[in-house]
Design a protein around this nucleic acid. Structure first.
Lengths: 351, 351
DNA sequence: CGCGGCTGGTGCAACGATGCACCGCATGCT
DNA sequence: AGCATGCGGTGCATCGTTGCACCAGCCGCG
């Protein structure tokens, strides 16, 4: 099953087979071409990737580094990215950083050593310094769910939803319903997009004539390492408990993401409140479960499929066309999905 | 950064470096060894995988073929498998079959062409005929969440929870609570473990002195291709609607998996019933969301982490030790996790 | 002294694909 | 006739690592 055997079978030289395989068949007799093609599928020949990569230095694998595919949000990204890659014959090497910065860096190093030249990085870190050395050597990086920062490598592509608009939509939805006491629940505002989401939240308040200072921001629980699935929901749950302990609890809550929102809902339920009646909750992401939960969750949808496709397309074009090496930011438009978890505020704040 | 440069730096031949790298250093002077080691990390040398694989035919990548990592259950598997693999320096190539048998086969072919010799296959198919040719050529296969069948390759390892025991625990829990009218909700019983789960369900009924014939089995909605996340939940939702339309609706429901159970809960809620009060629901898998849902879901836990670790261990031992080539079935013990979605039956069947 | 055996390493031919440089032939042009 | 040009394809060195076969040097032994 080597190129040699195909060549022998077709009565040509290995070079000619290689030429055909690599599209250098401008000046090849149609007859020759057919002989080779027949030989190829008679023998069931498949080029050896290792040999090909050794020779060319290229390969058709991209890396995906996510905090954890156990989290449905990242799972969805993995699924769509893989799907887009498959369509072009690319493969996806999956790496769960488990929110460990060191592991994240080690993974990128490993990928590079494996000959992977393009990586979609979903970093939980505000700085990308740890991968700079490789970027300088030619690693193509797409940052997902993280907008570009001043210190980022010049060639970086970042793909993200417009977080500020998203949470603004969320908060606006609540103020439109008549809510005046709102809370924003999140872990530490360590990452860029968390800050953005908070900014959108306060912008909406101001627009509605509410002094952001009077709005409650749920106390920050974790530090920077609360990017997980379990962590996010537990954070939400704990935050809900704290909010309920306030003298005048908020009637509307915007959560940093859906898993967190689900945790908030659970925490409110622990406190005897009914979500979508006593208190309104809005999430962010629109994971599959948002529409399954009881009550169904009002949330801000990220166009995940399109974003994943864009991530792959960007990487691909920089990988083989040696396309634009210039950095670029793609901001996708989020969409508010209204479901049952939001409603006008109850007449009285429940005890 | 080649082995040559390391050799030059250390004043030895490439062969010697290679020997050290591959543990053939029995008769090597400690001094020589140190010189090489110093050279390696002075130059930051990393062996070129492509070259190594070309030469040896081996590699340290395993394939994982799942229906879709968008589904939290498979996401969790991916996460734990990847984690186990990482600890031994292996990588995981992720493949979403999207429940398409053809895509499943194509993926396995691709993996083989990539030099991947070990694959964890989460097949939605009852027969593994489509990958037999490669197994005969030496592909090591671990079937996950699918017990061995008569026609399976002799070398196949299968890893699964004991499905019959699991659903028996689930149904028994309901009968112990006093439920007498039970339903089993599932898609087509096309796969092995679905049949097993159904078997455990009926076994529990018999043990409780209930004639399985009088128990309701929710009508099958999909065909064989309802293994997805969205599909499973929608199936559950539709099934719940149908069950509610019966003259005497069941008071206890066992679902084929958690996503399906969540769909059932949603369907019951659509019908105005309260889960955990009017009707009891038991799931299967214990995904993270089972504990987040409202009400929290009673379910049968699969020891996912251990199962994933076992999958990797099995594969690994067959890959490099050329360990036992004999097939093997590993059945893990499931555990019933009681939460809020189950309770004694209400006094009267609600209208 | 001469031979065998051990020690600590080295030489070299692969693995399979690639793509540049090159080649023989025929045709066209002046 | 002499030279350039186009056509259809081939030769060969190369990518980085591996591991078998081999080799010098030394020791001990009869």
């Amino acid at each position: 099953m080597t190129i040699q055997q195909v060549a022998t079978e077709a009565g040509v030289s290995p070079s000619t087979v290689s030429n055909l395989l690599n599209g250098r068949n401008h000046r090849m007799l149609p007859e020759t071409r057919q002989r080779i093609e027949r030989a190829i599928d008679k023998l069931g020949y498949r080029p050896n990737r290792a040999a090909r990569q050794l020779r060319t230095g290229r390969n058709t694998t991209i890396g995906l580094v996510v905090p954890s595919v156990g989290n449905p949000f990242w799972g969805a990204l993995a699924r769509h990215l893989e799907s887009a890659a498959l369509a072009e014959g690319y493969h996806v090497l999956l790496c769960n950083s488990e929110r460990d910065p060191r592991r994240e860096r080690d993974y990128v190093d490993e990928l590079w050593a494996d000959g992977v030249h393009g990586v979609v990085l979903c970093s939980s870190l505000p700085s990308l310094e740890h991968v700079m050395p490789l970027v300088e050597r030619g690693l193509q990086l797409v940052a997902f769910d993280r907008t570009s920062q001043a210190g980022d490598p010049a060639s970086l592509v970042s793909i993200s939803v417009d977080n500020a608009i998203g949470s603004q939509l969320a908060a606006q939805h609540l103020t439109d319903l008549g809510h005046r006491r709102l809370a924003f629940v999140s872990g530490a505002l360590a990452s860029v997009n968390r800050k953005e989401r908070y900014r959108g939240f306060t912008a909406a308040l101001e627009q509605a004539g509410i002094d952001p200072a009077t709005s409650v921001r749920a106390p920050v629980k974790g530090d920077a390492d609360d990017f997980g699935d379990v962590e996010a929901s537990e954070l939400g749950r704990a935050a809900a408990a704290e909010l309920l302990a306030l003298e005048e609890p908020p009637t509307g809550i915007v959560a940093i993401n859906d898993m967190c929102a689900l945790g908030v809902c659970r925490g409110l339920r622990d406190g005897g409140l009914e979500v979508g009646k006593d208190v309104s909750v809005v999430g962010f992401d629109d994971i599959v479960l948002a529409d399954l939960y009881a009550p169904t969750l009002t949330t801000v949808r990220q166009p995940m499929k399109e974003m994943a496709a864009a991530a792959f397309t960007q990487l691909r074009s920089r990988l083989d066309d040696s396309g634009p090496t210039q950095g670029q930011s793609l901001l996708f438009r989020p969409e508010l999905i209204v479901r049952e978890s939001t409603a006008p505020p109850a007449e009285r704040t429940p005890s």
